[in-house]
Simulated assay, not measured.
Amino acid sequence: MAHNHDHRPPADLGPAFRWAVGLNSAYVVVEGFAGWITGSLALLADAAHNLTDVAGLLIAWGAAVLAKRAMTARHTWGLGRATILAALLNAIAILVGVGAVTWEAIDRLSDPVSVPGLTVMLVALIGIAVNAGSALLFMSARKGDLNARGAFLHMAADAAVSGTVVLAAGGILLTGWDWLDPAVAIAVSLLIAITAAGLFREALHLSLDGVPFEIDRNKIAAWLAVQEGVQSLHDLHIWPLSTTETALAVHLVWDGSDPDAFIDQVTDALADDYAIAHVTLQLERHPCERATG
């Protein structure tokens, strides 16, 4: 009997990446030039971070393209794992950039540079529009795709960064306190670091074949154990094939009479209820000798 395995490709994020890369590349040039002319470390910090985001978007885009390639004799699962590696590289790039900016900002606190608050504010306002618009491009896909979520978090964090730069520029205009510029750069860097640390943790977990955080392994084990004919189970493994696809393999000690119908029912339910479309069930009349938990 044929089994219905839902191997649909991930959503096409090509247009979203294309617009996001184009908008952010243009803004990096504008913001970096403005930061250099005005001497604003907050603008330069944000421009440097945006530059790493452009690189990250390109990596994520490339990974999304690779994930759509069909499986081959050498890569029997396809190249979907590239999306996990892209998310991991994105997180590392952000953390490195944050460290460099923070180091420079701390040094600048002791010797603040006078910056034109109005110019900084106007450039940062443009940044809010660019980054918020880019984030919206990935909003619908972020919940089911870590790669898309990484892109969304980058853009949303950058919009928040630009917002704080606007506040810092306003504070400089009102008070003349130039130290607000490096202080905001530090605060922004810490905010971004927290966001990137979460992305790094999840991407590293998935790269080590960890069970995706949105899946409860114990719940699935309990569900499998009460299916008709199942006496016990062992060797239950759940791992990510990409940021959107998950695989499951399990040995079931089973005493039913229609294996094809049983496999169809279980695989369909796992795909529909748990979004696990790649399922391998091994049915046994008795537990195998090398059974593990």
Rank of each mutant, 00 (worst) to 15 (best):
G32T: 08
D235S: 07
E289Y: 03
L208Q: 15
L191E: 07
N4A: 10
D258A: 11
T102Q: 09
T164W: 07
R290G: 10
F213D: 11
L43T: 04
A151K: 05
L95Y: 01
V165C: 10
H75Q: 07
L174E: 04
I37H: 05
A277S: 09
H205I: 00
L85H: 05
A249Y: 12
T292S: 15
A26M: 09
A16N: 08
E228Q: 11
T243N: 03
L233R: 12
A129H: 00
V28G: 13
A261L: 10
G293Q: 07
P10W: 00
G293P: 01
G62Q: 01
W239D: 01
L43D: 06
E202H: 10
G171E: 01
A48Y: 06
S114A: 11
A105F: 01
A159R: 02
W19C: 00
P112F: 04
P259F: 06
S140I: 00
V184T: 07
A86K: 09
G127A: 11
W77M: 06
H154W: 07
I238N: 00
L58T: 03
I186D: 03
L153M: 06
L283W: 13
A193P: 13
G170H: 10
G99I: 11
T83E: 14
A16V: 08
V98P: 03
A151Y: 04
G144R: 14
N4K: 06
H278I: 12
V96H: 00
E202R: 13
V130D: 12
L136M: 02
A156S: 14
K143N: 06
T175R: 09
P287L: 14
E245C: 05
P10H: 10
Q265T: 10
L208F: 14
S25N: 00
A93N: 08
L248T: 01
